[in-house]
Structures are given as structure tokens and as C-alpha cells.
Nucleic acid binder design. Structure first.
Lengths: 233, 233, 233, 233
DNA sequence: CATGAATGAGCTTTCATTCAT
DNA sequence: GATGAATGAAAGCTCATTCAT
């Protein structure tokens, strides 16, 4: 049975904590920062609170991140932009129909981003973009643009294979993007205080959106859309 | 019979004027605050700037609103007017196809809300909901719920008339709502600092969305969706 | 006999203080800043301490001066650069010999700058110039350059009138400038802790310097300086 | 006779090496500190940068010097070596005219002190004297006083030999000292950020000063200074 | 009623110093 | 002895709020 001498135990704890330090610090700080940024927004989050939640002092935060803005960028990179290469690779290897591919993409986005704290970043950027132009630009380059490109690849594939109706993809991507980003935003804003019966169940929401979108995107049997013809011909 | 005593009348005038002024001041402050809150968010808007834009001194602002938070609440309450009765009436008198009705609804929303300053309130509520839960609830009841109901009527009409595919309308409304609200948010946030070539033209955006949505909502010719059948049957 | 009610007196004091405020504040702050900058240097002077010495709060300081650097610039303008126009005018009206003019200039400098706290600015700039390049540039433009020009006018006058030996004035000005600036520096640095018998009496110092300098500057009877001829002819 | 036991020798070597290292460390730190203190002043120099320039860690610096203040004191003490005996000897052997002697002295000072890093100490002391009064006193005794005495000897020699006009030497020395020390200070402060056309070339500066000073110090042909007679006799 | 000078808590960032390893 | 991660007291500056006029 090991010694239970309290002093030894404390010493061991301290040592263990120390050893874990340098490597673990950035991760702990990024996790704390993500939580707080999402909870309170970028401007309203105090650096000291991030540090406290990560279990370190104010000074330590600035040992790892040169400024609050850099901390934010690191959070974005860690949680979002770092994943695009992985996703691009995944898409290269996808062999099903484009409809399935889109279904898969959307579900994957929800599992990895939308349903996690990372989706708070989207809300946060939408809320504070105008006050932090540098961050907004960064986000545009690191997230919006690559996300657009990724989605565009999926849609282009569907068009090329005759599965989707040809369209102006610059705007076409928003057919998918808008409902997803709206869901993320909703979840972190009005969704937190929905009236009874108004709560959105993400899975259901996504299912309805996806199937409608897919039908909307689908290659039309004929060149016109007879069912929806205008009244004033 | 009203008193015609001239002195009383003068006094009444003076009182009226003073009361009108007293009432007008907050109006100017609320207008200025709306603009600034939308532009920069709650936290980043300085009380002094609101006062300056309203043409009064900083002290005056606090004469009418006990705090910046109270000002915010007043701004939101002030701008949630009940336009819904007017719209409900409009819809009662619509005689075209449901597709046209939806097109009309969306265009009307864009013209009357989306493209005007009123859309700023949407952005504001989405951004600040978590900091003002009581306001968010209020907004849910006064805006989100009625908006939902209105849209639900349009979709229900389409289903009833066999124009739209039957669906779970609780989620179905978001097929229309999500892209529109996303557009409003985008316009007030990242849209203000988009990279070259990434700017969204609202009219084009709406056209693409509407036509896709309509096709997606349309009554399926058969009960299945053959074109999009899954690979794994 | 006036009421001596203590409450009334306090109220009166407060009112008096208030009334004196807006006009007096900048002056009081500049005076406090000059003292502290000279005592402790620019970097080591805390904004809050300047405010406290001026009898106001930290915030008030920044109401009148946008930053600590701007405060410093204002101090310099108030105490030094603002006087050059007056001095230029004085020199325009001087009618004596150029030797007398130089004597007068130096004495005037000592009385108005050198012997006052303003001379601390010189020391301070010499000490901290490299850490505050913007301030150094400002000082060069506002003080060094005009001071040089002023002195150059005096020497040029002497040369033009045949009183002083022709010389390269770019360096000639330092014959006068160097001993004076050295005196100012000394006074605020090592001069404050001189060993017994090492103290410099400014008046005596100036007298000795001036008379030697004047003799050194004087028009040589012949083109050479026979008395000091080199040993190696 | 020294022990020749190989083991002892190895041990001795190791000990010697360790001791040498122990001794060398402070030297490297002092050198680095001198450079940085001169460049940026005491307050603006960061301990970490001193350590980095010395090639050690921040912790090591505090192993050798209890605080930044102690480091500063050590830097000044280290750099105040007694060169004065050497110079006194040199002067004993000088056989030229006193004018040449002064010329030589000044050029020698420039070459050995003024143009080298050692002049940084002068600047440092002038800048920080008031923050380190005890050091300033030390400097007075070790440097200023002996320097004064040395210069006094030169001037006294000139007077004794009838080459220089008799004068109060306590102040007379500053006729030479002030321009030289000013040059040293200027070089390390405002000189580093002079406006175009305002730069001082030390050689030119010294030449102009020396020749003017020499003329100013020179034995007056007659007891009065006719050329500069006041206008108001 | 309206003003705006004044306040001071609060924020980000820096850096001398400590101490477990 | 040497290290460098961690600390936390400052410091400059902002801004919601107060209150004498």
C-alpha cells in the first residue's frame, strides 16, 4: 500500500501538474477561451477570466498568446479552419450519389461543428464582425471562403454528374449554407430562450431542410418547372 | 365642453409642448441608439455617441433611460410594432397560386423589413439574446411567433390546395425563414466586410433561394422522389 | 459678519472650486505634469500621479489630454516652444552690440528656462529620446530646430557686423548651446548630489562661459591666431 | 610545490573551470546590460533581454544579481576603471604647448572614451543619477572629480606658462568639459534621431569647439578685451 | 429640464521576480 | 548551478454614470 503521507501526496500532485504543464497549457487555454467567447462574446470576455478558467494566472495567458485577438484566431484555427484539409480529403474519397454526399456533408458538419461549442464561433463572428474588422477578415479567409469552396465542390460534382440542376454556384452554395448557419446562430441566441413548443430539434430541422433542399436542387425532369408555373403567363 | 379660457389654453399649450418634447427626446435617442446598436452591438456602443447622434448631451440620455441596458430594452420594444395584423389582412385577400403568394411574401418582407433598418433589430436580438434573456423571450412572443404563424398560413394554404407537398410545418417554416433571416444577419455583420467577389446581392440571393425553395416545396408528382433515390436501397 | 455655518462654507468652497474648473484644469495638469516629468522622467511618471497632484482623478486627465504623449507635448509647448515667437520679436528689436546681444540671450534663457523647471525637459528628452522616437522628433522640430535658428540669427548678425569671426554656423551654434544645455542637464542629474566644493553656481558658470566664448568668437585682429600657433610649423 | 596527483588535477581543473564560468557569467551579463542600459535607459531595459544577449536564461541573471537595480549598480561600478593614473602619467611627459596639450587631451578623450561604449556610462549616469543618488555620489568621486583634476592640471599649466589667461579654474574646466560631455550625451540621445541636416559630425564638432575654446582661453594681448567692449561705457 | 465636468472601476498588456525542476 | 514557466502588481486608457450648476 502506498504511503498516504499528505505532504508527499501534495508534492506528487504539484509535480504531476508541473509536468503536464507546458504541453497542456495552450490546449487548456484554447478550451477555456472557446467556452467563454461563445458564452459572452469576444469583447465581453475578459482575458483574466479565460486564464482563471484554464487554471492559470493572467500573465500565463499572454505567455502563450500575444494578444486577445491572437487567442481568438488560435481558437478558430483549432476548431474550424484546421479541419478543412481533412474534409477535402474525405470528399475526394466519396463514392456515393451527390445527394448522399450532400446529406453526409451536412450531417458531418452538424456532428463536428454545429452541435459542438465551435458553432458558437459562427454566432460570435456574426455578432461582432463589424467591431473587429481584422478578425472578420481573418474569419472570411480561414472559414467562410474554404467552407464555400468545399460546398461548391459538392454541388459542382452533382451538376457535372447530371444529378443537380445547373445553377449559379456563387449563390447556390447559400441554399445549403444559409439554413445550416442559421441553425447554428439560432442555437446560440434565441434558441436558448424559446417559448414552449418553439424549440428546434436540430436533427429534425436538418432532415426537413436536407430533403427539401435536395428536391429543390434536383435535376428537373424537363427544362421548365410546370407545377409552379406563374399565374400571369 | 372644453374650457376656452385663454390662459388655460396657453398653459395647456405649454404643457402640451413640454410633454411633446419630453416624448420626442426619447424618440430621437431611440432612433440614434437603434442605428448604433445595429452597427456596433450593445457593448461597443458608447452612451455618449448615442447622445451626440440624437443631438443631446450625455446627461440627458440618463435622464430618460436609467441605464444603457434600459435604453437597449426600450429600443427593442419600440421597434417591435405589430405589423402582423396588416399582413394577415393582406394575406386574406390574396388570390393567386401559393407559389406566387410565397414569392410575394418574401419580396414584401425584404422590401418592408429585410432591406430597411428594421432588419437591424433581428441582428440585434440574435446577437444579444443571451445577454438579455427577458428581452429575448419578449421578442419570441412578439415577433418570432407571429412571423411563424403567418408563414405557416401560407404554407398550409399551399398544402391544402395541393400545391405544396404535405410537411411538418413546425419545421417547414424554417425552409423559408432560415435563408431570409440569414440574409438579414449577413447584411449587418460579415456582409459589411466581405472579401472581393464574396459580396451578396440581395435580389439575386432571394431569387435563387425562392426558386429552389419553391421547387423543393412543390407537390411531388409521385409519392417518392425518384431522381434522388439513395444508392443503398 | 458672515455666517460661519460650516455646511455653507463647504458648499461655497465646492462651488468656487467648480467654477474655477474647466479653465484652470489644463493649467493645473500641465504644472503637475511638468513637475513630475522632471522629477521622475517621462516613462516613470504615472498618469494617475499627475492627476492626483493636480487634484483630479485619473479620468479627468484624459479628458483634457488624449494620451500621456500628448500631455508631454503640451507641457513642452506650454513651457518652451510657445516662447520662440516672443523671443524672435525681442531679437528684432535689439540694438546693442552682438556681444551684448549674446550675453542678453544667454541670461534670458537662464532666467526663463534654465533656472526654471522647464530646463528639466531638456534633461528628460536627452534621457528618454531613444525610447520615444515620436517625442524626440517632436522635440527636434519644436525646440531644437527653433532654438538653433534663433541662436544662428544672433551669431550671423555678429558676423555680418564684423563683430564675430566668420564660421561654419551649423557647428558654431553649439559653442553657445553646448555649455548651456550641459548646465541644464547637470542641474537635474549629477548636480543634485555633488560632492562638497563641486557644486556649480549657475551665475558664475554662465559668466565664465560667456566671457570665454565671446573672446573665442571675437573677430580676430588678423586672419591667423598667432598666440596659439602650433609647435610644428 | 604543487600537487601533481592526476585526480587532484582533474578536480582542480573542473573546479577552475566552474569558477571561471561562475566568474565569466557576470561579466557577460554586465556587458550586455551596459549596452542595453545605454541604448534604452534603465527602466526601459528588460531583464530578459539582458539575459538573452548574455546567452543565459532570465533566472540566471537573478542568480548573480539580486535585482535589476543591483545589476545597474554593478554595471556602473564595473565600468569606472581608474584610467586616470595612466593619463596623469601621460600628461607628466607632455612637452608641447598647452594649446597642443589641450588639443591632444580632447582628441584622446574622444578616441578612448567619447567615441566608445564607455561614453554610454556618462549618458547613463546623467540620465539615472536622480534615481540612484548613492551611485551618483560614487560616480562623482570616481570619475567626475578625477577628470576635473586632470583637466585642471592642463589649464593650470597653460596659465603658469603664460599661455592661457588666468581664470577661476573651478569653473574654467567646464569650458572644456561641457562641450565634450554634451557631445557624448547627444550622441546617445537626440543624436540617434536627428532631423536631416541636423546630424553632428563629431570630428567637425570637436575641431570647431577646440579652436574657439583655445582662442577664448588664450592669454589676452592686453588686460582688456577691446573688441567686445560693451556699448554702454 | 439639460448640461458636461468629473469620477473610478475595469480592461488589456507588460515585466521583475520566484521557484520547482 | 541553470532553467523557464508561472505569477501578479502595475500602468495606460475607456466609458457608464453622477451631480452641481
Amino acid at each position: 500500500m502506498p504511503s498516504t503521507c499528505p505532504i508527499c501526496e501534495i508534492a506528487a500532485n504539484v509535480r504531476a501538474k508541473r509536468e503536464r504543464r507546458k504541453d497542456a497549457r495552450p490546449g487548456e487555454l484554447l478550451a477555456a477561451a472557446l467556452e467563454l467567447f461563445v458564452e459572452k462574446g469576444f469583447a465581453a470576455t475578459r482575458a483574466e477570466e479565460v486564464a482563471k478558467r484554464a487554471g492559470v494566472s493572467k500573465g500565463t495567458l499572454f505567455l502563450y498568446f500575444a494578444s486577445k485577438e491572437e487567442l481568438f484566431k488560435a481558437v478558430v484555427r483549432e476548431n474550424i479552419s484546421g479541419r478543412f484539409t481533412e474534409w477535402n480529403a474525405e470528399f475526394d474519397n466519396f463514392h456515393g450519389s451527390s445527394a448522399d454526399m450532400l446529406r453526409y456533408s451536412i450531417r458531418a458538419w452538424w456532428e463536428r461543428i454545429g452541435s459542438t461549442k465551435a458553432s458558437g464561433i459562427t454566432k460570435l463572428m456574426m455578432s461582432e464582425a463589424s467591431n473587429f474588422p481584422e478578425l472578420a477578415t481573418f474569419y472570411q479567409h480561414e472559414v467562410i471562403q474554404p467552407g464555400n469552396d468545399l460546398l461548391r465542390r459538392v454541388l459542382q460534382r452533382g451538376i457535372d454528374r447530371g444529378e443537380f440542376e445547373p445553377m449559379d454556384l456563387k449563390y447556390g452554395v447559400y441554399i445549403v449554407l444559409a439554413p445550416m448557419l442559421f441553425l447554428a446562430m439560432w442555437k446560440h441566441s434565441l434558441g436558448t430562450c424559446s417559448a414552449a413548443g418553439m424549440e428546434i430539434d436540430p436533427d429534425h430541422y436538418i432532415t426537413v431542410q436536407v430533403e427539401t433542399i435536395l428536391f429543390g436542387l434536383a435535376k428537373r425532369p424537363t427544362s421548365t418547372t410546370p407545377v409552379l408555373k406563374d399565374k400571369n403567363p
